[in-house]
Write a protein that binds this DNA or RNA. Structure first.
Lengths: 323, 323
DNA sequence: TGCATTATTTGACAAAAGTCATATGCCGTT
DNA sequence: AACGGCATATGACTTTTGTCAAATAATGCA
């Protein structure tokens, strides 16, 4: 404490170390350096030195309110850890999983408009998460935006199918929408291949290969996941893929822990973008809700499908741990 | 938390509120405003606004290390409360009263040189405190300083008498010293008055009336105080003065709680400056050690004898409470 | 839909803070 | 007393930050 330098000024208001007095006048009384200099009868440069010394001595502590910054900090950690371009981590909040989900959805919907630019071609995947995000989007016009449906449609008990997702997103942005007017899955590979050869379908499939940004969620490989409950895959299929190393589902396709495609019985029967076409776009926006999807989300990031991630604190922490 | 303004930039690194991100880059990553502005693709003026908002929202806390400032803060409080020009409060420290005393003495000795200017006429009182301060003074030359002995001399068992105090102070400052070559107290008022009429003495007494600064301590009215133990006053005298309202002793003179002189049997027998001559000098430096002297110190301040005070935290607090 | 109102952003300027080479003062040595 | 080395202080200059009125974008309302 009482540093005993010879530095003193007869103009001091207390006998205290002049460095302390300077710091006090500056930080507590918020005088500027010139005022302090003339009060203490020293040059302003000297005041600068005193303030520097006060900081070096650790008299001044500047702290950022943790509650305002810890989600931001978590986002930076996630970004750096996985080499993402950006991340948005929402606070966990106090409520249950519904609360968590809605926060993430709101976050994604808030963020999305600022991630899109005129002329973008946005590929949109399928799923309840994406559907909810689309619902939450504010009406915002983005000039020359094109929205593309990445996977075939599929009736579900939940009232959202791939075409509704893409259409809704397009509507909110007043964008043109290119839908994929085929079922997500067909009974045989032959029918699928025949369809793919159809001129109209072929053009649509071609179009989605040229999107520069994508918006998607991932599914887990749990038996109660949407991929199974929607009837897209049977439990048998699921086990089959899991046995081959699948940890998650992305646009109806299975990926392993590294994000590589896992081949299996459904592949040829599916209509929609293929995984290698989904990789390394300008921007891949992954919205992930729920800790059960963490392995799938990490795989999607590792695989190069996602550059931007929206999730919450607990999931982000789990992702960091998982890796 | 998640403030949901529409303000967003596509260049943000997280989906977080741009105000948070700005604050982070500024305070945590210590980028300057221009760097932040170009990173976020906004004008620098906008960055200024965001930072202002971050401060308004209470995201930024700047704290002054209490251990460095609480004595300073106490000094300012004491100064403001009593209308002093300045105060120097030393930390209490961990040791016992010896430790307290030596800190205060060191503090006073450190401070004193910066309070004096060339041409000053410094009146010095008598007492162990002042003696110790003089001992502690660093050798410093103050041009044209004159040191004056304010009260007559008095042999004590402690080895300090008024002439030694003033001589030592003068020596340390290479100053001219005007001593008062008479005893502090005489057996009768007549002898005292005869002495005062002596040409030499008269001149000396006259000289001390023209000092512009004074250095003194106060004594309590306890039976074990120096005023009694040195033999200057008998216990009988003491009780007499106390009965008339005395709370302390200043240059051998008794004062009441308001700092006004308390007249009594010793007054006419004493040689030295009178209280009304001591008041309202340019500067009156009171060095006060020990809680038992708090009432006396407060009285000395109230009476207008002191403009500057050196003491420690516990005494300063007691002085505030006392008032 | 068009217009008025309000919030936000911006560029140009002013003020404040930081830097650095030089100057001053201080202390120990010759 | 003169000298060199070290620490501190200063003035002139550069960079950074703050201010403010005007422009632009968002919002509400008839």
């Amino acid at each position: 404490m009482g540093q005993n330098s010879t530095r003193r000024s007869s103009k001091q208001i207390s006998g205290e170390d002049i460095v302390v007095e300077t710091a006090w006048l500056y930080y507590h009384d918020s005088l500027n350096q010139s005022e302090i200099a003339s009060r203490l009868s020293v040059s302003r440069a000297t005041v600068v030195n005193y303030l520097q010394e006060a900081r070096e001595r650790g008299y001044i502590h500047t702290k950022l309110a943790p509650e305002a910054f810890n989600t931001h900090r978590a986002a930076l950690e996630l970004r750096d850890h996985f080499g993402l371009k950006a991340a948005y981590i929402l606070p966990d909040g106090t409520g249950g999983s519904d609360d968590h989900a809605s926060r993430i959805i709101r976050g994604a919907a808030d963020w999305l408009p600022s991630l899109l630019e005129p002329g973008d071609r946005l590929g949109v995947a399928w799923g309840k998460t994406i559907y909810d995000v689309a619902e939450r989007l504010e009406q915002t016009t983005i000039p020359d935006l094109v929205v593309l449906q990445l996977v075939g449609s599929m009736a579900t008990p939940y009232g959202f199918s791939a075409d509704v997702c893409s259409s809704n997103v397009a509507r909110k942005f007043s964008a043109k929408c290119i839908n994929l007017h085929v079922p997500a899955i067909l009974s045989t590979a032959e029918i699928a291949s025949t369809l793919r050869a159809e001129s109209l379908i072929s053009k649509q499939l071609d179009a989605i290969r040229h999107c520069n940004k994508t918006l998607f969620a991932v599914g887990s490989c749990n038996p109660d996941s949407h991929i199974a409950s929607s009837g897209l895959a049977t439990l048998q299929d699921l086990e089959d893929y899991i046995a081959r190393g699948a940890v998650g589902v992305l646009c109806g396709r299975f990926i392993d822990a590294e994000g590589n495609p896992v081949s299996g019985p459904l592949d040829n029967r599916m209509m929609g973008i293929e995984l290698h076409e989904l990789r390394h776009r300008d921007m891949g926006i992954l919205v992930s809700i729920g800790e059960e999807r963490v392995p799938a989300a990490v795989a999607a990031i590792r695989g190069g499908y996602a550059t931007h991630v929206v999730t919450n604190q607990s999931c982000a922490a789990a992702m960091m741990d998982h890796a």
